[in-house]
Nucleic acid binder design. Structure first.
Lengths: 335, 335
DNA sequence: CGTCACATGGCAAGCGTTTGCCAAAATTTG
DNA sequence: CAAATTTTGGCAAACGCTTGCCATGTGACG
């Protein structure tokens, strides 16, 4: 009845003993196949298999200083935007033979900093997405750890970012070609780097096209912020809205439906991220898609690359974006 | 230019040297506050802070055999169903001072087995969700590791499961009270334990209510399987459909709209999971909600409990479910 | 057949901690 | 004030693995 937890695991010594060789030979059989006789290796592997042995990563890490583990830091795991990044990072890590640790900062910079510190010695590097940390803190952390940023640029650090300049230009062109003369941007959290880039891109593109761009907000990018944002849009009589992200846009969509504002006949709505759900909300959402999976995979790759080269010199990588036009945007209403 | 990676980290010896004490004293200052003089402790902590020291988890793990790390194994991270479990586990782990490692098996039992093996020595335990592994494999793995199951029961192992019996009864009652005389169940993957439980519950409840239940499928539970499933439903002339999960249900919803089948006038649709999106698809989906966050948190809790008690005796915990009635289900069409 | 090079396996040190044990110092007790 | 006890800190041995170095055995070459 009282089984006291799991059985003891076989260690390298157990295998060595059982195979009649030295522990070092067992080690080499696993990690340096050419360094040991073929037949010996077979034997060792067989014995190891029989004993259910697998090397203790902690011990390996201790000796070599390499844990073959990287951490992915996200502000909020449940945010569907990050699902893609996570998936991509997972894939990248698997390909590179790395273990992925996922850490959620709960949108809290203090948590984030503590996390970097606590996990630091245990991992070979970090991929930090959409961080809220200031540049100096980031750079300080980078002194002790390899760090790759996703959707945040910081001088001196490798980063993978989406091409918001081109993307926002596409959005504005899309709106302009449908006769819109102005639009409202529903801003997200002020600390959000990507939010700032999105607005900057939109504003520049608007100017280039002779459109008027106005920023509302900031709003928390959740569905629940939709009503407040939508009401502001209605009050302003805007013909087009670009939301900080899809989740907010979907919230806006719901509220507009509630208030009997027709989309896209009365108001066009555009989001960012192309998250799960943006294609089956009502109406389906026009949105700027980022290659989140690729971003995740690339970030891991960059990290692995740094580790092998031993340097931090990789420049920022910019990933293309793509405007996915769906039913939520269309011709501006005639006035 | 060629900064060779991160700086060397301070070790316990560095701190000891700088503070003029022995490493053991530093160790105790951190882990056994009562065991060292108050003033010495202050000093050590201060020096440690100054040097930016934090203990190397790998070394700690090696010595103590405890890594204070647990792994959460999910079949597919991007499946929104698991977002809740992940979030809950995150929270639970944070509360217990545990680090959470997230591992994705990509719906592949072989991956899953390998993962358990590879990660085994590195973690204090596993939370395994919706596993596809057979009972024996699971029990074998449990010999070497602490394991808690989520949404899968297995004799001898602790598990957290949803109360599908009550839940499915609610679904059937709901349908019956709206005049439906029969319904179709769109089955998911055959290896899915929860899928089997769902169908078993539905069938039993149908019998109790005098309804006819038919199973179609199996279908891969993705939006893309929606068309095939919906077409089968239309061909069968069913008045009500219960899908393996929400994602599949949403796919069905889309196809039905495409084929101009009115929901819920012509066909009622019910899903499982209450995932992100089920409230803003069109029409909003009636679905059986599970307490996924709670399941995740409880699983971690159970693991931590096992670790402290050193035993594996916790019985299965059943979490209540709740039918969320939305617009996708209603009165059966008059014949 | 002697010499050399290489293939192969073992020894032992060390990675950064924790912890059992002991010694010295400080405190209490009689 | 001596003896007993407690507090405090250091020593050194693990923990499981890797790896530089050395010793032996093997085959090739001259």
């Amino acid at each position: 009845m009282d089984q006291t937890g799991p059985r003891r695991r076989a260690t390298i010594t157990d295998v060595a003993l059982a195979a009649g060789v030295a522990p070092s030979t067992v080690s080499r059989a696993f990690t340096r196949p050419g360094r040991v006789n073929h037949r010996t290796r077979e034997l060792v592997l067989e014995v190891a298999e029989r004993l259910g042995y697998s090397p203790n990563p902690a011990a390996q890490a201790l000796e070599s200083g390499r844990s073959r583990t990287v951490a992915l830091v996200v502000p909020d795991i449940t945010n569907p935007y990050f699902a893609g990044v996570i998936k991509g990072a997972e894939r990248g890590a698997a390909k590179a033979g790395l273990t992925l640790v996922l850490a959620d900062t709960q949108e809290n910079p203090a948590n984030e900093e503590q996390l970097l510190r606590r996990l630091g010695p245990a991992v070979d590097g970090f991929v930090v997405t959409a961080t809220r940390l200031p540049d100096d803190t980031l750079r300080a952390a980078a002194e002790l750890n390899r760090i790759v940023l996703v959707n945040r640029a910081c001088r001196g650090l490798t980063s993978i970012v989406a091409d918001y300049d081109t993307g926002t230009r596409q959005i504005v062109t899309h709106l302009a070609s449908h006769g819109h003369r102005s639009f409202v941007f529903l801003g997200g959290p002020p600390e959000s780097w990507s939010g700032a880039r999105r607005w900057a891109g939109l504003r520049a593109a608007a100017e280039a096209h002779g459109l008027t761009a106005t920023r509302f907000g900031p709003y928390t990018p959740t569905i629940d912020s939709g009503p407040a944002a939508a009401d502001a849009v209605i009050a302003a009589g805007a013909t087009a809205v670009v939301a900080h992200n899809d989740v907010l846009a979907i919230g806006v969509l719901r509220r507009l439906a509630e208030r009997r504002v027709a989309v896209p006949e009365d108001v066009s709505v555009v989001g960012f991220d192309n998250v799960f759900g943006s294609d089956f909300c009502h109406p389906p959402l026009t949105t700027l898609a980022e290659r989140t999976e690729e971003a995740g995979a690339r970030a891991i790759e960059a990290l692995a690359h740094q580790a092998s080269r031993g340097t931090q010199d990789t420049p920022a990588r910019v990933l293309p974006t793509q405007l996915v036009v769906r039913a939520s945007s269309g011709t501006a209403p005639a006035r």
